[in-house]
Design a binder for these strands. Structure first.
Length: 269
DNA sequence: CGGTCTACCTGAAAGC
DNA sequence: TGCTTTCAGGTAGACC
């Protein structure tokens, strides 16, 4: 599933190809995904891509009049193919480029979304987002201030995009294990020391994901996006019942905030 | 408003 | 074996 490191890898891979290219036409094969495709996106015609950015898990393609925002949900794939290549099942929209290639969005579960952001605006879906986890703004002091007074389990708080973006179920689980903190800990009980550990662990895991994202993304673009490079290294995610890599005790599985959570009750307090 | 729960969607995997 | 059920997960919106 595409998380922040996958989107960042995708951005890095697509940017050199897309920058300066013209989108000659946009073809849609259904009315939309979670939302209808915006008319401004469908109307792109000979518009030059002037930038490829990422904010949270959104990929942003910049044009003179605004930007296309693409969120891959949990099963979305963006593939750069020859425009003559037959469509695959679940290819929902494509951006035809002036070099004969096409950027195709495939998304079996259709949790993804394609948005239009007018030049000078920030789309309302992005305005409430917390800081980027790898930025300076995401630090011990900031995290503590946001956890203050919260009874919610720390894992739920970390996955709240208004607190910090990019910590999905996988990375939140891995970071909590790395920091030795129980996912059930009420957010307000996180100490300054633990907050510092958590910030460091989140940055560490995301950076690891990005460093492994390259290999995972190549598979992803060419094949089906199954288990990426990071998942093969996950210490708790997907390992319920298996021995903890730290102490050997079987890993526990609980539902927290409606999400499956794997953790070690020996190593995480 | 904080906190919690659920719908959305399909395919893989588990269950029977 | 083959059919049925469950589960996965980011996000927004409903609910109390």
């Amino acid at each position: 599933m595409p998380e922040l490191p996958e989107i960042e890898t995708l951005r890095k891979e697509l940017a050199p190809t897309l920058l300066g290219k013209r989108v000659s036409k946009v073809k849609a094969y259904r009315s939309g995904l979670r939302e209808a495709f915006p008319p401004e996106v469908l109307a792109l015609h000979n518009d030059v891509i002037t930038g490829v950015e990422r904010r949270s898990k959104y990929l942003r393609l910049l044009f003179a009049s605004g930007s296309v925002l693409i969120h891959l949900g949990m099963s979305g794939q963006l593939r750069l193919v020859s425009s003559s290549e037959p469509l695959q099942k679940h290819d929902h929209i494509e951006f035809l480029l002036d070099d004969g290639r096409s950027l195709r969005l495939r998304d079996p579960r259709r949790f993804g979304v394609v948005l239009w952001e007018t030049l000078g605006d920030i789309h309302h879906r992005l305005t409430g987002l917390g800081p980027e986890p790898l930025s300076e703004q995401f630090n011990k002091g900031y995290l503590l201030s946001r956890l203050k007074g919260k009874n919610t389990p720390i894992k739920t708080a970390l996955m709240d995009a208004s607190v910090v973006v990019g910590a999905g179920n996988i990375y939140a689980s891995e970071a909590l294990f790395d920091a030795g903190i129980s996912p059930f800990t009420p957010a307000k009980q996180i100490s300054a020391y633990q907050a510092e550990e958590l910030v460091a662990s989140i940055k560490k895991e995301l950076k690891l994901g990005i460093s492994l994202g390259g290999s995972s993304m190549r598979d992803y673009v060419h094949a089906d996006g199954s288990l990426g490079g990071f998942l093969s290294q996950a210490k708790v995610y997907g390992r319920a019942g298996k021995p903890c890599l730290g102490c050997g005790h079987p890993l526990r599985s609980d539902v927290i905030g409606g999400r499956g959570t794997v953790w070690c009750e020996q190593c995480q307090h």
